[in-house]
C-alpha cells in the first residue's frame, strides 16, 4: 500500500458516499445514470469474485464488501425506491456497444487465458468506459447538479491517483500491470473534459451547464 493508492481508494469511497448522500438527502436520483451504476456493479462483481478465495488484507476485504454492497444499494435506490425520479429518457446510452467490444477484448488481450483472469481483465476494461452513460446523460440534459459534479470529480480522481500509484509501484517494487495502466489512462482521459469544467466552473461556485 502507498499514499497514492490510499488516497485513490479514499477518493473512490468519497465518490460512493457523496452519491448515496445526494440520493438519500434529496430523495431523488435525478441526473444519475442507472446504466453507469449497473456497469459499475458488473465491474465490482467481476473483479471481486476472489473475495472469498484469496485473502489480501482486512482493508482489502472490507473495501470490496463495501463497494459491492453500496453499488447494489445504489441500483436499488435508482430502479426501485426513487424510481419516480429516475430520468430514463436521458439515460439512453446503448451499453451493449460497450459490453460486447470490452468482452471480446478481454478474451484477446489478457495476462493469462484462464477464466478468473479473463473475467478480471473484463472488469478492468469495462471500468474504463463505465462512466460513459453518465457523461452522455449530462451532455443530453445539458447540466449537472453540483453534488453530482463532486461525485464525478471524486470518481475521476480515484483512477488518476491510481496512475500515480502504478508509477510509484513501478519504481519502488518493480510492479507493472500494462492492462490496468492502459485502461486506467483511458478511464482518466474520459474525465478530462469534465475535470476542466469542474475546475473552471464548480470551483467558482457556478453550476456545470454544457452547451446543450
Amino acid at each position: 500500500m502507498n499514499i497514492f493508492r490510499l488516497c485513490g481508494d479514499m477518493s473512490h469511497l468519497a465518490a460512493i458516499i457523496i452519491l448515496l448522500l445526494k440520493m438519500w438527502k434529496t430523495r431523488s436520483v435525478a441526473g444519475i445514470s442507472g446504466k453507469s451504476q449497473i456497469l459499475f456493479a458488473t465491474v465490482f462483481t467481476a473483479r471481486y469474485l476472489d473475495l472469498f478465495t484469496s485473502f489480501i488484507s482486512i482493508y482489502n476485504t472490507c473495501m470490496k464488501v463495501f463497494f459491492i454492497g453500496t453499488v447494489y444499494f445504489t441500483i436499488y435506490l435508482i430502479y426501485m425506491k426513487f424510481k419516480a425520479t429516475y430520468d430514463s429518457n436521458h439515460d439512453s446510452f446503448r451499453v451493449e456497444f460497450l459490453i460486447v467490444p470490452v468482452g471480446g477484448l478481454a478474451f484477446l488481450v489478457n495476462h493469462e487465458f484462464a477464466p478468473l483472469e479473463i473475467i478480471w481483465t473484463f472488469s478492468i476494461y469495462l471500468e474504463s468506459v463505465a462512466i460513459l452513460p453518465q457523461l452522455f446523460m449530462i451532455s443530453k440534459t445539458g447540466e449537472a447538479e453540483t453534488i453530482t459534479s463532486h461525485y464525478l470529480f471524486a470518481l475521476g480522481s480515484y483512477r488518476a491517483l491510481y496512475l500515480c500509484n502504478w508509477i510509484y509501484r513501478y519504481y519502488a517494487e518493480g510492479f507493472f500491470d500494462l492492462i490496468a495502466v492502459v485502461a486506467g489512462v483511458v478511464q482518466t482521459i474520459l474525465y478530462c473534459d469534465f475535470f476542466y469544467l469542474y475546475i473552471t466552473k464548480v470551483m467558482k461556485g457556478k453550476k456545470i451547464s454544457l452547451p446543450a
Binding site: 470490496k64 493469462e112 483472469e117 500509484n165 500491470d177 490496468a180
Partner: peptide, 10 residues
C-alpha cells in the same frame, strides 16, 4: 510463461 501480477488492488 509471462508473470501474472497478483491482483492485490481494489
Amino acid at each position: 510463461d509471462e508473470f501474472v501480477p497478483r491482483h492485490d488492488e481494489l
